[in-house]
């Protein structure tokens, strides 16, 4: 079954209201990323997570600034089902193992921001895409899965915000060669792009933000379209 996920409720209005609305409209999962999370903001984040969790009846993934078992415990206690980790896991890969042995792999989503450089390779970027590393995307994903990551949230920086479709090649490589679900992110502009990432890249789920926030594509319309195109989705 292919999932349609939603990201970053904070951009476009009241996150609690939007979360509830998306859940009601048929979103398969909510992903809430606070990319500017800092220590001072953490308490606010867990309070907000708690409010959203009370109002949604679908899986709820939360990320942003998570770097310890304690951080995750707090978020789960406030109603998150899974967490995403990114920069902190890259800097200290044992974090993945610590979290998966404490909470189970199903709870640990590794987020990767990746960019294809002129040499044709896809590299891992950190700090919300600001810092380049020499690590190749596939290599890092593979290592993270070995350490216990249960899902990969893959964002292509080349495609993000361009509305020209998801990054098919790198998504397909990860989703067909890794034994865990891969959520494709970055580049959705039309309903056909979703179909393409499911059929051509074998993505397990597709994630988008602005096209839903700004009502360019309606969730019920998108899911109906996918169903008509023989993609296995929940209506």
């Amino acid at each position: 079954m292919k999932g349609v996920n939603f990201l970053d409720l904070r951009d476009a209005g009241d996150p609690v209201e939007l979360g509830a609305l998306y859940a009601q409209q048929g979103a398969d999962e909510l992903v809430f990323l606070d990319i500017t999370a800092t220590v001072e903001k953490r308490k606010t984040l867990s309070e907000l997570v708690n409010k959203i969790a009370h109002h949604i009846n679908i899986p709820f993934t939360v990320g942003g600034g998570i770097s310890s078992v304690q951080d995750v415990q707090t978020l789960l206690y406030n109603g998150a089902d899974k967490v995403t980790i990114n920069t902190s896991a890259f800097k200290r890969p044992e974090l993945i193992h610590e979290l998966s042995s404490e909470f189970g792999s199903q709870c640990v989503v590794l987020a990767i921001d990746t960019k294809q450089e002129e040499d044709g390779n896809w590299y891992v970027y950190l700090n919300g895409g600001r810092t380049k590393t020499e690590m190749e995307c596939f290599e890092w994903a593979q290592k993270a899965v070995e350490l216990g990551a249960g899902e990969i949230l893959l964002t292509s920086m080349n495609n993000d915000g361009m509305k020209n479709g998801f990054a098919i090649d790198i998504t397909r490589k990860l989703s067909t060669e890794l034994p865990v679900p891969v959520i494709a992110s970055g580049g959705a502009g039309t309903m056909a792009h979703f179909k393409e990432v499911f059929t051509d890249a074998s993505a397990d789920a597709a994630l988008a933000a602005s096209i839903f926030h700004f009502k360019e594509i309606g969730i019920p319309d998108l899911k109906q379209y996918l169903k008509e195109n023989e993609i296995f989705v929940r209506i």
Binding site: M1, G3, D28, S105, Q106, E151, P179, P181, D204, R234
Partner: peptide
């Protein structure tokens, strides 16, 4: 059993 191309664990919606 890993058959018919499934991924384990199953994570997601099913009927």
């Amino acid at each position: 059993p890993v058959v018919n191309g499934i991924k384990v664990p199953q994570i997601g919606w099913n009927q």
